[in-house]
Each structure stands twice: as structure tokens, then as C-alpha cells.
Design a protein around this nucleic acid. Structure first.
Lengths: 186, 186, 186, 186
DNA sequence: TTATAATCGAGACGGTACGTCACGTCTTAGT
DNA sequence: ACTAAGACGTGACGTACCGTCTCGATTATAA
């Protein structure tokens, strides 16, 4: 059970390598869109990227690593707060961004993959990703001294992310607004 | 191109069959507990149940069917409302039951599978299961004419089910109570 | 280093299985003829046999096992003595049979494979095979009370088997006769 | 467009290169001892030599070349005859030298490879090596006008080299002497 | 002494084969 | 006749080496 290590250490910068990395990224996205995380195969990504299978294993030893690489840009969005000036404005902006990301293929894959691999490597990625996406909610709420900030953040996050699990369609802007009304103290 | 016919139509009812069914059920549960839904293999269940693999395929043609069979008792709980007399009491009872079920192996498997199987045959099972578990919340809320009942039910359900995704530990009784406070209008 | 076990226990006798076994045997032979033991790949045999790779692994877990299966008929020849009536006649018959077998693809493969895999699984097969092929020489010699029977058998065996390693062509009947003259006391 | 003048002509002789060559030679030997020719990998040699894999490929384009380089000193021994004065003395000296060399790792590797590489590039090396080692036997025998010299040389060579294939242990001095008795006319 | 050539380490890549696992179907055997 | 045990085709897995290539960075060598 030794954790998988990165195989490549000093990443090359040459145009060739960069090109390989980029095409794998793109191929992963399109494969995710086609078949979801469950149906994601290294074989498929390799073929779609026009790259050898072993090349993928060299850089991303696990499917989780591949997903992480592809999802990173999404998560990076949550590292800065919206800064609209108002509490409600910030939260709404976060909710809408979350909803949009959840609709993109890599976002769907993340949601799908939450603990898909049992207790495995996926779960760490999922836990940390969710935490990272919930964090700005918490920060914004706590800055405004709202009580029960963590719980509200938790509810808001999963409420929007899983909205269409229950409703069949993604949340509209108005749904998000109403959700906020429900959660914020009045 | 006649579609392949099932070889066995009417399932046998004898004591031997019942015994097989039961041991497969038990084995499935224990396998789920060991490795989660992702790690569930027919081979493994068959071995654990002391039954041939083909036997399982005969009765449960897909993994989804196996999971459904095992999870049915849990879901059946949600078909009747608690009936404590008060709205808050009913909701709390539902939350606590939900939390407890989510902690059992088959419950964990369901949660895991809610998103894991996104694409395949699982999704129907998952959608209907979630709906079935959310339903009593909605019924109780609507009976009390609470506005935004569907949204509240949705938030409460996923808020409790995924509680330990965020917090690392299952919700305590008090957590559930506070969650209700947050969601119910005041 | 646990030794590879046979994967299939109760061998099936049905026409299908028999057919598979036979086509793999034939394919192995033809592959050996084409590329020798060094160039023998399971992939190749499978393809040539029109059989799946895993099927081969199921019955013959190692290349050595595959070779053994294919070479068995050859070795079986050596289990009975020629019985020509005279010592020299018996030995000559053995030498000629040996020479002929060494020229067949599976025979060549054996010779080539002598310890090809280093200390591995091959060496056991080779050792036991050589012993089996040398045995009749020894038996015949010892029955005639020829001194140094084991050494003579050893020299005769490798002398013929490796004849064309040195001479570029297989031994002629006359070469074999002269070889006997050399080795038998006079 | 005056073409640039070459400042250097041939292979570099500096201490660094010599050091690389030597450590690769040593590493090859120890790898051969560890895993035999079949288990010899360029990766392994490179690692053991503390040298980059590409460096090896630069100097020894094939495994055969590597083996040839390592085995050359052994073969060089056979280029001069023992010169003990007597036929029997010479032959015995050759046999003993052969037996000793066959016990050394590079010798074992050769023996192993004599047949392992049947098809490929190895075969040329092997054929010529065997010829080179048999040659002195032939020379000595022919100088003494022994009839059937080539056949005797052939038998003596493989008889000793493969002695422990049959007997499990290398030939003793006495075994070698008796082998000579058998082969020389009396 | 200095430019040029030769060599080297490092990292990556496409490729072939490996041996394994689980799947779901189909054959064969036993009662 | 029915069911279990067994075999099979299939697809993916992750690994190991192979031989090649492109980069700098060093080391030798000849002018």
C-alpha cells in the first residue's frame, strides 16, 4: 500500500513535452465528457490524445492524479474570494460559479467521483477538493460574523452541487438566490 | 437477431434457493463493508457466499440489481412517515434515521454509488433511491404548509448524508437539531 | 518465488476445449519454428491459435509450461528402448532418433532454451528433459555392462544434439556411426 | 561557406571514458552472475555501473556487443596453445581451463547464451566463440595426427562444458582425465 | 588557451510484451 | 432436465525494458 509516487521529477519544459501534457489534458476532458469518470480509461485518453499509454502513466501514475490535474484550474478559482462588497453578493457569486463549474465535464466528473474508488486515492482528492471549494463560503461568512458559518457553507455547497440530482435540472439564478434566503439568518 | 432470452423465468422458491439468496445478501453486505461499492466484485461476493458466480448472475443480472436488493430494506423505512405528532419531531426523527442508515455499510455504498455510477445503470437506482429517501421530508414539510418545502428537504437530506464528508465525523444529535433550526423558518 | 501453479484443475473434455488445446499446441509449434524460443511470445501464439491470450495463461501459466506441453510427445519416445537386439544397433537407433528430433522445431526450441531463462523455470524443464533423453543410452549401455556408461551416454547425447552447432549441418547417418565407433570401447 | 575543420579525430581516451568503460564491464559481470544472460538488462547494468543508460547504448549498441566485450578476455586464452610438450598434457590443460572458464559468470552466460539467443544477433557471436574455444583442441589433435580430430574436439568441448548439466556438479580433474581416456585412441 | 569535438547525465517518448483481474457468456458435466 | 463448475473471449490494468531522441553540461584534444 505504498502511495503512488510521481514518476517524473524534474519536469521538462521543452515544447514537445508541453504539447504532450496539453493534449492529454484536453483528451482527458473530452473523455470525461463522453463517459464520465467511471468510464474513463487510460487507454481511451491515450488514444484520444495521440499519445502512448505509458507516457500517461509516467506523469500521472493514477487516474486520481489525472483527474486532479484536469480539475486544478477549476479549484484554483476558489482560492480568491469574489469581493463584491456585500456578503450576499459574495455568496451569490460563489454559488453561481459553483453551479457553473459543476456543469462542466471535469466538474461533473468530480461530483461523480466523490469516493467512487471506495476508500482509495480518490477520497483524498475529493475531500480536499470539496474543502477547497467550501472554504471561500466559510471565509466570507465568518468575515461577516454570521453564526453557524461552517454549517451554512456546507449546506450551500452541497445544496447547489447536487441540485440537479434532486431536481433533474441545474439551479437557476433564482434558485440560488432563494437558497441563500433560506440559509442566511433574517 | 432475437435478443438473448433468460434461461430461468420463474425463480425457484424452495428452501435451498432461499438459503442461497440469504447468503448472497449477507456476503454482499460484508463485501460492501470491506471494500465499498467501487471494490465490490461478483467474484468476491460469490466466494464469500460459498456460491458459484453464475448463480449470482442468474438472479441478479447486474451489480445494480444486487445493490438494490441489499439496500431495499433501508429504503423501505422511508416509505412510512415517523408520525411523532410535531413537524420538528418528525423531521428530527427522519434526520437521525438518515444519519444512522448512512453509517451502515449498505448506506455508505449507496452514498458512494450516488455519484460513482453517474453514467451507467446505477444512475436510475440512485436517482430513485435518493428521491425515495427525500420524499418523507417533503411530505412532512408540505403537510405543515412550510414554504420552499422541496428545497428544505433537499438541503436537509444531503446536509446530513454528506455531513462527514465535510466534518470528518457523522453528525451528532445536536448537529441535526441545529441543522433543523437553520432550515426551518422562524 | 512461489512456483507457478496450474490454474485449471478439472480439465474439461468437451470438443471445444480439446479444440482450443490442440490449436494452441499447433500454434506454439509454428511460432517456435518461425522465431525460436527466444522470440516466442504468448501474444503471438494466441493470435496464431485464434485464441485469447488469457486462455493460454489459464492452462499454461508460463512459457516453460507451454514448451513442456509441446515437447512432451518427443520426450515420450525416449521412454521405451529401441530393442534392435544388439548394443550397437540400439545406440545407433537412439542417435538417429535424437538427431531427427533435434531438427524439429520443438526440438530446436528445447536446445535453444537450455537454461535460457537463467536459473528460472526453464532450467528444471531442461535438466529433466535432457535426463529423460539420456536415460535410454545409459540403460542400453549398462545392460551390456559397458564401463563408463554414464559418461559415454553424456558424450553421445550432446555430441549429436549440438552437432550442427559446430559443423553447421546436422549429423549424417555415417557421422553417427563414426561417433559410436569413437565412444565404444574397442 | 568554408567547412569547419575537425579538431579531433577519433575516440576519446581520457581517464573519464576509461573509467566508464571499466565500471560498465564490471557491472555487466556482476549482473550476469546475479541473473544470467536471460535476466541481463541494460537498465540493470547502467544502475549497477552508476552510469546512464544512454551511455551504454552509445558504446555497445546491442546486448550481444556488451557480452562480447566482457567475454573477450576469456576467449583470448584459447588463441594460444598450452604447449606442455605432450598431446595428452595439452588436451588435459585445455579441458581444465575450459571447465574453469565455464564456471565463471561470463562463461556461464556464454554457455547459456549459446543456445538462448539462437535466432538473433547472439547466434553469430556464439558460433564464433564456440569455434574459437574448440580450435585449440583441433590444432593440438591435428598436430599429433590423431584421426577424427574434429569430432574428438567437438565431443571433448561440449562434454566438459555441459558436464554439470548432466551430473549436477562440474567435472573434477579426474573426470577430465577419464574423459580423455575415452576419447583418445588406444 | 581556446574553440571544437566527443562524451555524458537527465528526462522523456513510442512501443511491445508481460501477467493479472474482473466481467459476462457459453459449454460441459453431474445428479 | 437443471444447475454447478469450468472454460472462454474481452477489455483494461499497471509494469518492465526496449531503443531513440533532445537537451544542456562536462571533458578531452588539436590548433
Amino acid at each position: 500500500m505504498d502511495q503512488p509516487v510521481r514518476r517524473t521529477r524534474g519536469v521538462q519544459q521543452g515544447p514537445r513535452s508541453a504539447q504532450v501534457v496539453e493534449s492529454v489534458r484536453a483528451a482527458t476532458l473530452s473523455e470525461l465528457a463522453r463517459s464520465g469518470f467511471g468510464g474513463l480509461t487510460i487507454d481511451g485518453v491515450a488514444k484520444a490524445a495521440g499519445v502512448n499509454r505509458t507516457t500517461i502513466y509516467r506523469r500521472w501514475p493514477t487516474k486520481a492524479a489525472l483527474l486532479a490535474a484536469v480539475v486544478e484550474p477549476l479549484l484554483a478559482q476558489y482560492d480568491t474570494d469574489p469581493g463584491t462588497g456585500s456578503l450576499r453578493g459574495d455568496l451569490l457569486a460563489l454559488l453561481l460559479a459553483l453551479r457553473d463549474n459543476a456543469a462542466r465535464p471535469e466538474g461533473r466528473a468530480m461530483i461523480e467521483a466523490v469516493r467512487a474508488g471506495g476508500a482509495g486515492e480518490l477520497s483524498e482528492l475529493m475531500t480536499s477538493s470539496a474543502a477547497r471549494a467550501i472554504a471561500p463560503f466559510r471565509r466570507v461568512l465568518e468575515r461577516a460574523d454570521v453564526p453557524r458559518a461552517p454549517t451554512i457553507a456546507h449546506l450551500a455547497f452541497y445544496g447547489v452541487v447536487l441540485w440537479d440530482q434532486t431536481h433533474g435540472v441545474p439551479a437557476t439564478d433564482e434558485d440560488c438566490a432563494k437558497l441563500l434566503d433560506l440559509l442566511l439568518p433574517h
